[in-house]
Amino acid sequence: IEKFKLLAEKVEEIVAKNARAEIDYSDAPDEFRDPLMDTLMTDPVRLPSGTVMDRSIILRHLLNSPTDPFNRQMLTESMLEPVPELKEQIQAWMREKQSSDH
Rank of each mutant, 00 (worst) to 15 (best):
I1V: 06
I1L: 06
I1R: 08
I1T: 08
K3Q: 05
K3M: 06
F4C: 07
K5I: 06
K5E: 10
L6P: 12
A8P: 10
A8G: 11
A8T: 10
E9G: 08
E9D: 12
K10R: 12
E12K: 12
E12A: 07
E13D: 10
I14M: 14
V15A: 13
V15E: 13
A16E: 11
A16G: 10
A16S: 12
K17Q: 11
K17R: 10
N18S: 09
A19V: 12
R20G: 11
A21G: 06
I23T: 12
I23L: 13
D24G: 11
D24E: 15
Y25N: 15
D27N: 11
A28G: 14
A28P: 10
P29Q: 03
D30V: 07
E31Q: 06
F32V: 01
F32Y: 11
F32C: 02
D34G: 01
P35R: 02
P35H: 02
L36M: 02
L36V: 14
M37V: 07
D38H: 04
T39A: 04
L40V: 14
L40Q: 03
T42P: 04
D43G: 01
P44R: 00
P44T: 00
R46T: 05
S49F: 15
G50A: 03
T51N: 12
T51P: 15
V52F: 05
R55L: 04
S56A: 09
S56Y: 04
S56C: 09
I58L: 04
I58T: 03
H61P: 01
H61D: 01
H61Y: 01
L62R: 02
L62Q: 02
L62V: 03
L62M: 14
L63H: 11
N64S: 06
N64K: 03
N64Y: 15
S65F: 04
D68H: 00
P69L: 00
F70V: 01
F70S: 00
N71Y: 01
N71D: 03
N71K: 01
R72G: 02
L75M: 04
T76N: 08
T76I: 06
E77V: 05
S78G: 13
L80V: 06
E81K: 13
E81D: 11
P82Q: 06
P82T: 09
P82S: 08
V83A: 07
P84T: 10
E85Q: 11
L86I: 08
E88V: 11
Q89K: 11
I90F: 03
A92G: 12
W93C: 02
W93R: 03
R95I: 10
K97Q: 14
Q98H: 12
S99G: 10
S100N: 10
S100I: 14
D101E: 08
H102N: 11
